[in-house]
Design a protein around this nucleic acid. Structure first.
Lengths: 180, 180
DNA sequence: GTAGCTAGTGATTGGCCACTAACTTGAAGG
DNA sequence: CCTTCAAGTTAGTGGCCAATCACTAGCTAC
């Protein structure tokens, strides 16, 4: 397998492992095991653990946009918003995708506490690019986009907390696309 | 200083450190240093690191409710919602409070991945108790409460990402109590 | 066939970290 | 004065983990 293909599989494995364990809670050993490769080899494919995390984070955001884009091609305004809402609810089944988002957000604050502002800039760039693409798609209004993302963040939280889809806590979403 | 008073100061210090570094990114050494006490002594006050984290998480949620309660005593319905919204926006200045919430959410998923379901149950109990108290205060409607919390979770996210209060990304909140 | 390159491994290391054990200090009480 | 107990410390241990180093197997080109 070529190095480039290996890197690709590392990113996929890292997304899952980081999503579940967080940055500090995930060992490079665990990622390597999931890829099916020795742990030192990761450091030949990437300069360090942080670079693997960054690649997984970027992949995660790209993937989220891909889901939105696919669900709403040809649509716009509130129809696009509704389609993307439904698509996001579908992601609830794929916990890893949503949890990786959360891990990205909290890792920014950890990095800032450690004096590294760089990860924060990357994360904000990723966030704004996703935010603006969604905003344009649903009509360009800032308040609409804010409402859209706010429901998304609550969904992330409830998934993180491990609520099953039929729990009463989800019942308040009725007005904006219920879970599944 | 009595053991009980020490425990109290440990909880306060732990809330700050865990908020910034996350569970695995925070050493007991760092907490002890902030308290001004030797690291092994923490283990005489608490059975282990997890117990310290749990205490800090519980404190964080209690404190959040205290802020809501104080801001909305005597009010109800949308007036209470508005007052609590404004109060929550005030917490943006106090990043640690909001970040500790986020750390609690993601640590549930990390614990679940490690096979420990207990933290998750604690976290859901804390979440529901806060959710329901707020819901009652603003009139009891499930959809209203969901909307309220969804905006809160987006605020948490933007704070985690490190956006300053005057950034354009906040401008979509105009309709529901702007930042500061 | 051999020189060189690419994919990959095994062994190791230095540092950190949660947690333990044993000791010290100081104040209250009889 | 001596005991007791609670608060707190110093020293140490075992385990994990990111990163490095030296090495090997197989392929291609000349």
């Amino acid at each position: 397998m070529s190095a480039e293909e290996r890197r690709e599989s590392v990113v996929r494995a890292a997304l899952i492992e980081f999503a579940r364990g967080g940055y500090h809670g995930t060992s490079t050993e665990a990622i390597a095991r999931r890829v099916g490769v020795s742990q030192p080899y990761l450091f030949r494919l990437f300069p360090g653990k942080q670079a693997i995390f960054a690649a997984a984070a970027e992949r995660c955001v790209e993937e989220t946009w891909r889901v939105f884009d696919e669900a709403s091609t040809g649509l716009s305004g509130s129809a696009a918003a509704e389609a993307m809402s439904d698509a996001y609810m579908g992601l609830v089944e794929d916990r890893d995708q949503l949890m990786m988002q959360m891990q990205l957000y909290v890792s920014v604050s950890a990095a800032r506490a450690a004096g590294e502002e760089e990860i924060g800039e990357t994360a904000r760039r990723l966030w704004e690019s996703l935010f603006d693409r969604v905003r344009i798609r649903i009509g360009g209004d800032m308040e609409d986009a804010t409402r859209f993302f706010s429901y998304g963040m609550l969904i992330n939280t409830l998934v993180a907390l491990g609520y099953p889809p039929d729990h009463r806590i989800w019942s308040g979403f009725e007005g904006c696309g219920p879970p599944a």
